[in-house]
Amino acid sequence: MSQLLLHNHKAIPLDKDGYLRCLEDWSPEVADKLASSESITLLEAHWEVLDVLREFYQRTGLSPAMRPLVKLVATELGADKGRSIYLMKLFPGNPALLASKLAGLPRPTNCF
């Protein structure tokens, strides 16, 4: 089982895909560490998307796949940000998988 080591030497358990095993383990530091393991430096633009995701998950218990993620970001942060190209730049590869991982959410269902 892989894990993430924080500066206070606390070990955070991760699953085989690098998602948090316990969602309560999430903190901004955890997000930063997870991001750097994906070669991403979290900036304001990233944080606001992660905040939207965390709020959505707290409200609904759901991890959105790509299409709903785009719609959610459009609703919460405006149409200029609710576009796949914008999210692809922030979270390269698969934004839905990557953003939910960094936000400490479970892997979105049916997102490959």
Partner: peptide, 12 residues
Amino acid sequence: DLSAALSALPLF
């Protein structure tokens, strides 16, 4: 909360 998840269905 299942009803909370249901409320998000339009997003999907």
